[in-house]
Amino acid sequence: MKKASLLLSFLLLSGIAFSARVDTVNVFSKVMNKNIKTVTILPDGYDDHHALPVLYLLHGYGGNYADWVNRVPAVQELADRYSMIVICPDGGVGSWYWDSEVDKEFQYETFVAKELVAWVDSEFNTRENRQSRAITGLSMGGHGALYLAMRHQDVFGAGGSMSGGVDIRPFPLRWDMAKRLGSYAENPASWESHTVINQVHLLTPGSLELLIDCGTEDFFYGVNERLHDRLLERNIPHSYIVRPGAHNWDYWKEAIHYQMLFMHRYFEKTT
């Protein structure tokens, strides 16, 4: 009996008995003619479940597809707890999840919103409807998640952002954005049309579930405040979290708990 208890304790502590199944795969992008590394997280008991909802989880600038599972192992536990599939695609270096008109090798809007979603639905037992798909991310990925959710409301029913760069215009020389859009001075119209805050006109009340989260010491705090005000002006319901914190993993390790609970409640409501 004692040996059995010790073995059970080891299994629980090591995560062997109750853990999500994590894999890294190559997903081919036809539009970019290359394979994109993608982490897939299947919740414990996936094979016993009916079709499951999917959360697309995007990394930030300078990161990659493995950031979330490597830096925040709790993502796997949350996938188990809420019985959702989590997909973490690579977003390249400074893609901002746009379809670049300047660089044809950066067509990440099409990849994530169309090619990746189609691949996931073909490979896994998913609920193939917008009410069962959500997308969120941090920093560049927070921008990308809201940008894609707002522009592809037929694909995603909920969008979130953690410390997102939701208005790119105050940062014309940062984070490779000019490489994807051209310089702000020479291509202002492109910058205006590729920033999240200028997608708000696409929303109607209740058309998209939204959760926006940003720390008060974050350099993106001001633009998140402006997005919040814009949504209020247009009477777009949304959840907005502001708490002490900066632009770092300490903040995002907490933020992901709020995001995944929010998405879980959305999925439950629409089931």
Rank of each mutant, 00 (worst) to 15 (best):
V93A: 12
G94S: 07
G94H: 06
S95W: 11
S95H: 14
W96C: 09
W98Q: 14
W98M: 14
W98C: 15
D103H: 05
K104R: 13
K104A: 12
K104W: 02
K104D: 11
E105P: 04
Q107W: 01
Q107L: 09
Y108C: 01
A113R: 03
A113D: 10
K114M: 09
V117D: 05
A118I: 10
W119A: 12
W119L: 10
V120Y: 13
V120E: 10
D121V: 12
D121L: 09
S122V: 10
E123K: 15
F124G: 05
F124M: 09
R127G: 03
R130M: 07
R130H: 01
Q131M: 06
Q131F: 14
R133K: 01
A134G: 11
A134W: 00
A134Y: 04
I135Y: 12
I135Q: 05
G137V: 00
G137H: 01
G137A: 05
L138K: 04
M140N: 13
M140T: 10
M140D: 03
G141Y: 01
G141E: 02
G142R: 08
G144K: 03
A145C: 04
A145V: 02
L146S: 03
L146G: 02
L146Q: 01
L146F: 00
L146M: 11
L148Q: 01
L148H: 04
A149C: 13
M150T: 01
R151N: 10
Q153K: 07
D154R: 07
V155C: 08
F156V: 03
F156P: 02
A158M: 02
G159T: 00
G159E: 00
G160C: 03
S161H: 00
S161W: 00
S161A: 12
S163E: 07
S163R: 14
V166M: 07
V166Y: 00
V166A: 05
R169M: 09
P170D: 05
P172A: 08
L173Y: 15
W175A: 15
W175E: 14
W175F: 15
A178G: 10
S183A: 12
Y184K: 15
Y184I: 11
Y184H: 11
A185T: 11
A185Q: 10
A185N: 11
E186R: 12
N187T: 13
N187R: 12
A189R: 12
W191R: 00
V196D: 03
I197T: 05
N198Y: 06
Q199F: 06
V200T: 13
V200L: 04
H201M: 00
S207N: 00
S207W: 06
L208D: 00
L211A: 02
L211Y: 07
D213Q: 14
C214W: 02
C214K: 08
G215K: 04
T216A: 10
T216Q: 10
T216Y: 13
D218Q: 13
D218R: 11
D218W: 05
F219I: 13
G222T: 15
E225M: 13
R226W: 00
D229H: 09
